[in-house]
């Protein structure tokens, strides 16, 4: 009645690939984190579509867990970015190419 199941999944796939492309191609650390956020959202969209398709609430429950993981990931990721920016003064992922043994 609403839409074919494949269209929901296709939208989720396109969103996920957009996020993946952002995480691959961009060099700003914040933009990489934004790409990860988009990917997590696409995963939750796929979960909700599947939950509606199979009439099971388990898919929606997993979206709650995705929200929790996304919140934790953003908190730690942003703290890491701030920390490394303080130490090296760079926001560019290419600036972190030197190791110190």
């Amino acid at each position: 009645m609403i839409v074919p199941n494949g269209h929901v999944l296709l939208l989720a796939v396109i969103l996920f690939l957009l996020g993946a492309a952002c995480a691959i191609a961009r060099r700003n650390l914040l933009m990489i984190l934004i790409g990860v956020e988009v990917m997590l959202n696409a995963a939750s969209l796929a979960f909700i579509g599947a939950a509606l398709k199979w009439r099971q609430l388990d898919g929606q429950v997993f979206v709650i867990f995705i929200f929790a993981v996304a919140a934790a990931e953003v908190a730690v990721g942003l703290a890491l970015i701030v920390y490394s920016q303080r130490r090296t003064g760079a926001l560019d992922a290419d600036a972190y190419s030197r190791l110190k043994g």
Partner: peptide, 29 residues
């Protein structure tokens, strides 16, 4: 590389999703 990889995966997923009989079933509200 990003455009290439995402383009390949997108076409593959689109072919699979739009041809799968399971994906054709409409979801009801």
């Amino acid at each position: 590389p990003a455009v290439l990889l995402t383009g390949i995966s997108l076409t593959a997923m689109a072919v699979v999703l739009l041809s799968l009989p399971l994906a054709q079933t409409p979801v009801t509200a």
